[in-house]
Design a protein around this nucleic acid. Sequence first.
DNA 1: CGCGAGAATGGAATGTTGTTCCAGCGGCTC
DNA 2: GAGCCGCTGGAACAACATTCCATTCTCGCG
Lengths: 223, 223
Amino acid sequence: MALSTKRTDRRTEALSKERIVEAAIHILDAEGERALTFRALATRLATGSGAIYWHVADKQALLAAATDHILASVMAEVAERSTLNHDAIRTVALGMFDAIEAHPWIGAQLSGDPWQQGLLRILEGIGRQVQALGVPESALFNATTALLNCILGVAAQHAAAERLPRGTERSVYLAAIAERWTQLDLAEYPFVHHLAAQLPGHDDREQFLAGVNLVLAGIESIR
Amino acid sequence: MALSTKRTDRRTEALSKERIVEAAIHILDAEGERALTFRALATRLATGSGAIYWHVADKQALLAAATDHILASVMAEVAERSTLNHDAIRTVALGMFDAIEAHPWIGAQLSGDPWQQGLLRILEGIGRQVQALGVPESALFNATTALLNCILGVAAQHAAAERLPRGTERSVYLAAIAERWTQLDLAEYPFVHHLAAQLPGHDDREQFLAGVNLVLAGIESIR
DNA sequence: CGCGAGAATGGAATGTTGTTCCAGCGGCTC
DNA sequence: GAGCCGCTGGAACAACATTCCATTCTCGCG
């Protein structure tokens, strides 16, 4: 009986790539990117690091799998609210924005490896709509990657914020940046000074959407 | 005399932040990002790692300083060919593109920390021209960061290529990506398949410029 | 001229990390 | 039951960023 119980336990809690990825995501979300080590992961899964390596090639693959897991659910959710063209693009883009905001470590992953599996889902989702918009063949690639750049941009921004000590308030962070900007030489950096003033109280989501709209307007003009 | 000679030598080859940064850039350019370790740096400077730490806070600061060093020279060079508005923006942008292509490790640095000193130079350079373009106050920030996103996008792409084993041919790299794309499920990724066909023989610089032009066109439309 | 304080140096030591290695266990097939 | 194989857990390893410290060098002051 003891044996059978143990076996059941084993089966129930059997190690698998999926279970590993879920544990990794939990650590990443709860304690940040730096806290994800194979030791921490092994502890949380009550096993050794060697066992994890049997399921996952290396840390990069683990992070890629975790990112893909999140992005897949983003696209799945977005796919339900089926809209068309412009609105569809905005919906996908905002879905990405929210995902990156909720899991900032994705930002580092995406900007570090933009052609990884996960982003292809987004490329596909956006590209189809751009195509449906009637963009000429020759400009398809450029228009789609321009939209992707908006996403990579916000990803980079959140990746930077992610590296901060845990629990830093967003407003404090923005204030610190504005502070640094205003300390620059006014004669040399007049424009940056100008921007610093409106940096606090700045809405990321709005900026992101404005960027997307700008690109969409540009696409309209070449259609 | 021996003493004086030794002292002179010391003076000539005295360690300084500048000399350290130059050595770091040399290693980064010659052997890639992964090769830049404090050991390698100490060896190249014929000193110990402790001495380096006296001049540089940590590795992040070193990379930031190296990046800033390059970006400063980019802006200096661009400033000479003084043009206006659209052309000035394109000139700055292309200068950045060329810099990232020549020193791909900058890509990783920029996308990892988009608000670092170095990028502010670019922000300033582009922002002024956007302002001169007559963009309304409320859209200034958004328009400028949208242009920056194009640069961050190409930075991320080169950062990914940088991580590859040394000496990988660009065409081979592109072919490998196209190969991966065509192996995706055609039903699920029709658009990616479509793009894969035109991925080899694809001109990065042109794509970059097209993205910038798209954003510029969008800016025109809200002016 | 000497001498002392602080700047600067070089290399050893420390603590983590990703990764590899291996001895063994459990279930499966003959 | 014997033997193989997928899988496990944890020890061992190499590399790294960073810290520490004993020593040397420089320069200004008495």
